[in-house]
Design a binder for these strands. Structure first.
Length: 609
DNA sequence: ATTTTGTGTCATCTG
DNA sequence: ACCAGATGACACAAA
């Protein structure tokens, strides 16, 4: 039990300290949830990035296909390849609803891959053709649907930009026709899954969704993002049936372009996906605390900032009260009579110091109760009983005085605490002549102080009751000669003498007890230290023993090897080697060595026995 | 309600 | 024998 104590104690302390510091660090910064959330978000973004890259690959394949088509039709007008692409995609979109959505997604990224100006040029070039060709499929919205549906490549740039704009800027009125937006929005709202996924995002996000793309496509796009289904992506990639070889070459170059796109899309997608967790949610995450703190703090800060007049006029908040009171006590604690006593009482009471120092705050409570209670304490009552009858009424009168007196005494106790910090011994007794006008704040007492005071106050009360003419401190701390001198100077009756003797005895014994406990603790600490050192010593010796055993084993092994080697060199008359199992080498005291058959050896042993 | 801790006090021992 | 200090044991309050 005790052996394990010291080390575990230290390690436990260290661990506690580390734990506390760690918690403080965490407390100082944002909550763990924030970090966890960001971490999760990052992971999620990584996943999305992967998906996007896949989709981009698909897009690249498509683009390659387009490029091939364009190259094939290079002879024709440059403007025609755009409608061709639109046609090419459209037919796919019409039969299979989901695939077009993915195309759209891809197209977005593709569009991002292309510079915005290029896209605009393509748009300008392709618009008339698109209208001609794509009118039938995208009949709902003449302006918006055509570009989106016909050439995803063209629309791509718009969407991210709008999304970004919407994200970066506060919800802005769309530059697109409001009707289109509303229509798209309504359609979006009609989709339950989208609602679930989006969790009803802001208008800005909605605008980003609705403006560029057709509602169904948007839905699918969202699906793709949310579902993150690689199979679909693969299917889409396979759908266009683009040549793979060319793609690889293009891919490398494309990857270089990807980062900014990724960033853009990441921002967009994250905004979309994290709509519930968007800036608003993040703000909620951080602001609530901030707001709360602000709300909570503002009044105090105001109080703090408020001029002294407020503090003076208004009752300060509780903490302020405590501090103020303690401070006042500190001031009060300085009364001259106590000061001289403190140095006298330096019989190492550092033991007490720690509790005293630690307890200032808690003492306040005790002060209230203690003060009220101590007057009624049994000991007091006993003393009262013992004391002459006339004393009792005085004692009753003294309660208020004692109360004040405690406050007065409290100051010395604080002084003690200070002393304890300085490792100076404290004098438990401070007999304070009653400080008549002193009002003691109810909270100010330390627990130790309260006890000390209660004790002191008790003796003090008794002394007062018996009208003992000199302070308790003197009674306790003065040397015998001085004490006797003082005693002789005053004419004291029997009760007074007895009380003074008891007070001195108790005071001395109290200090002695404190010193005794201090020594006891020091002894315990010293013994623990010795125990640790002994354990270290033991451990060291154990290691040494292990080492010795190992070396001994090694020597034995070497000896055995040597023995066998010597044995192998021995041969009989016929040149046959002796078997170690049948013979053994024996060395006599004079150093000569004999080869003895083991049977004979046993015989010899038996004979010797 | 119980345990732990700190403190004061008393009884006793010791130098 | 007396005294001062040391120490064990107990009580009490607070945590």
């Amino acid at each position: 039990m005790e052996i394990a104590l010291p080390k575990t104690y230290q390690s436990q302390q260290d661990m506690d300290l580390i734990d506390i510091l760690w918690r403080q660090d965490i407390d100082l910064g944002a909550g763990r949830e924030v970090f966890d959330y960001s971490h999760r978000q990052k992971e999620y973004e990584l996943e999305k990035q992967k998906k996007l890259e896949k989709e981009k690959q698909e897009q690249l394949q498509k683009e390659e296909e387009k490029a091939l088509l364009a190259q094939l039709q290079l002879d024709e007008e440059t403007g025609e390849f755009v409608p061709r692409l639109a046609q090419h995609i459209k037919p796919e979109a019409s039969p299979v609803p989901r695939e077009p959505s993915q195309h759209v997604v891809i197209s977005e990224e593709d569009g991002e891959a292309l510079s915005f100006d290029e896209c605009m040029q393509l748009l300008a070039e392709s618009f008339p053709l698109v209208e001609d060709i794509a009118v039938s499929p995208a009949a709902l919205e003449p302006s918006v649907p055509d570009p989106t549906g016909s050439s995803p490549v063209l629309m791509a740039p718009h969407q991210p930009q709008q999304a970004q704009a919407s994200l970066l800027t506060s919800p802005l009125p769309d530059h697109k026709s409001a009707q289109d937006i509303e229509q798209a929005w309504q359609e979006l709202l009609s989709i339950p899954e989208l609602q679930q996924c989006l969790n009803m995002p802001d208008l800005t996000e909605l605008s980003s969704y609705t403006i560029p793309n057709k509602p169904p496509e948007i839905q699918n796009v969202n699906y793709n993002f949310y579902m993150s289904n690689p199979a679909e992506a693969m299917a889409n990639a396979s759908d266009p049936g683009c040549p793979g070889g060319f793609l690889n070459s293009f891919e490398s170059t494309y990857t270089n372009v990807i980062p900014p796109e990724n960033l853009n899309q990441m921002t967009i997608n994250t905004s979309d996906l994290n709509a519930p967790f968007g800036s608003g949610s993040i703000c909620e995450m951080f602001y609530p605390a901030l707001i709360n703190t602000n709300i909570n703090n503002i009044p105090p800060t105001n109080n703090v900032n408020t001029p002294l007049a407020d503090l003076l006029s208004e009752p300060p908040p509780k903490p302020m009260d405590i501090s103020d009171f303690t401070v006042t006590e500190g001031f009060e604690s300085n009364p001259p009579p106590n000061i001289p006593e403190l140095p006298d009482s330096d019989s190492g009471l550092s033991m007490d110091a720690s509790p005293v120092a630690s307890s200032p705050e808690s003492s306040m409570k005790s002060s209230i109760y203690g003060d009220a209670a101590f007057g009624n304490s049994d000991s007091d009552m006993e003393d009262m009983d013992s004391s002459p009858g006339s004393v009792q009424p005085e004692f009753a009168e003294m309660f208020p005085l004692s109360y004040h007196g405690d406050g007065y005494r409290a100051s010395p106790s604080t002084a003690q605490s200070n002393q304890t910090f300085s490792l100076e011994p404290k004098t438990p007794k401070k007999e304070l002549p009653t400080s008549p006008g002193h009002i003691k704040p109810p909270f100010t007492k330390d627990k130790s102080r309260s006890r000390l005071e209660s004790r002191l106050s008790r003796d003090e009360q008794r002394a007062k009751a018996l009208r003992i003419p000199f302070p308790i401190d003197n009674i306790i701390n003065l040397p015998v000669d001085d004490f006797n001198e003082i005693m002789s100077k005053h004419q004291l009756n029997e009760a007074q003498l007895a009380l003074i003797r008891d007070i001195r005895k108790r005071g001395k014994n109290k200090i002695a007890a404190q010193n005794c406990r201090k020594r006891k603790m020091e002894n315990i600490v010293g013994l623990e230290y010795d125990l640790d050192s002994l354990k270290d010593e033991k451990e060291k010796q154990l290691k040494e023993k292990e080492e010795n055993d190992r070396s001994l084993l090694q020597l034995k092994q070497q000896l055995n090897d040597l023995y066998l080697e010597v044995f192998s060199m021995l041969h009989d008359e016929d040149g046959k080697p002796y078997s170690p199992s049948e013979y053994s080498l024996q060395q006599t005291s004079d150093g000569s060595i004999f080869l003895i058959p083991k049977s004979k050896k046993t015989q010899l042993k038996n004979k010797l026995k």
